[in-house]
């Protein structure tokens, strides 16, 4: 019978951990985004400004923006993974609700929305 753990396993685990940590650092060191795009079935349905506190609903997914962070407040799906995904605010972060086919992504810096509004 095969061994429980071999050197190859060890190397594999280390490589996977290094790759995933690098990925995590990449996501976490990103700057806060300005806008978020909500898609249903891959089609853009709404672009939210993170500066505004809003609540929108698509396909049974209630998306809330508060204090520059977005989270899923309520969803009609069964697994509620989207609700437990927590708040996102950094460029490249996202939340998906696969059962309701809804996705939310924080847009990168290249949006030409101004830094602030006067008036």
């Amino acid at each position: 019978m095969k061994k429980l753990i071999t050197k190859k396993d060890f190397v594999l685990v280390i490589i996977v951990l290094v790759v995933s940590l690098a990925g995590l650092i990449l996501v976490n060191s990103a700057d806060k985004g300005k806008t978020a795009t909500i898609k249903v079935d891959g089609e853009v349905v709404e672009t939210l400004s993170l500066n505004e506190d809003t609540l929108v609903e698509f396909n049974g997914v209630v998306v809330t923006c508060e204090n520059g962070e977005i989270y899923v407040k309520e969803s009609t799906c069964t697994d509620k993974v989207c609700m437990r995904s927590g708040e996102i605010s950094k460029s490249g972060e996202g939340i998906i609700c696969a059962p309701n086919r809804v996705s939310i992504e924080i847009d990168g810096k290249n949006t030409d929305l101004p830094d602030a509004m006067t008036g």
């Binding site: 101004p114 830094d115 509004m117």
Partner: peptide, 15 residues
Amino acid sequence: FSIGVRNPFGNQNDY
């Protein structure tokens, strides 16, 4: 900084 100047004839987010 880029500061949007509100469009007085549009809604809250229009600049």
